[in-house]
Design a protein around this nucleic acid. Structure first.
Length: 186
DNA sequence: TGAGTGATTGACT
DNA sequence: GTCAATCACTCAT
């Protein structure tokens, strides 16, 4: 039922804004509204899939709607939603959330008190939600422990160049909810 | 602004 | 098989 906008990473990046990301763990349940995303296309020099399929990114070449989680900079995980039909290698990076449920648990996991600093960055939200590489390949639109559900309807969406990468930063592949205090950068 | 950190990758024996 | 460059980040200066 969500497959329509998962056909294309750009559409998915835009459409996922306002959706709720929910993670059920033994410690408790955390959830948040997606307020910032980035699209990664198959022919994108900045994408992990640009140089073709590897052991790490093979989930990106599979069915859309699955979780692609990767480890980088020696200490950070990031969370992506796979999009595009099979063999396309597209995905959407979730860059920021607005915390909803389990805020105390997020504070405990992150070790900070300010709610605004819990999830305003791709690696931060992964830590706050308790997402690990064990969640790699989870289907997000079923009833799994890690899932995406309909949330709010964004008032206004902005787009901009991407952040934190070296290549193709001029492409307007970053989307965020205008005015949200929880985006990683205004 | 820059150091820290380790998995991943591609170029080499 | 080994080795070094790279990396879609964060936090403390």
């Amino acid at each position: 039922m969500y497959q329509n906008f998962l056909d294309n990473a750009l559409m998915a990046a835009k459409s996922l804004l306002g959706y709720k990301l929910l993670h059920v763990t033994p410690d408790g349940t955390t959830s948040g509204i997606i307020v910032e995303t980035e699209a990664y296309m198959a022919d994108d020099p900045a994408s992990h899939t640009y140089r073709g399929q590897t052991a790490r990114n093979k989930i990106m070449f599979g069915q859309p709607g699955y979780a692609y989680i990767y480890f980088t900079y020696g200490m950070h995980y990031c969370f992506n939603v796979v999009t595009g039909s099979e063999d396309h290698g597209q995905g959407v990076l979730i860059r920021a959330l607005e915390p909803l449920e389990g805020i105390d648990l997020m504070k405990k996991r992150r070790g900070v008190e300010e709610v605004r600093n819990l999830t305003n960055g791709p690696a931060k939200l992964v830590q706050a939600m308790g997402i690990t590489k064990d969640d790699y390949g989870e289907y997000l639109f079923g009833g799994g422990k890690l899932r995406i559900e309909p949330g709010i309807k964004p008032q206004q969406i902005s787009k901009s160049g991407r952040i934190g990468i070296r290549l193709a930063v001029d492409e307007l592949y970053r989307f965020y909810i205008t005015g949200s205090p929880y985006v990683s950068r205004p």
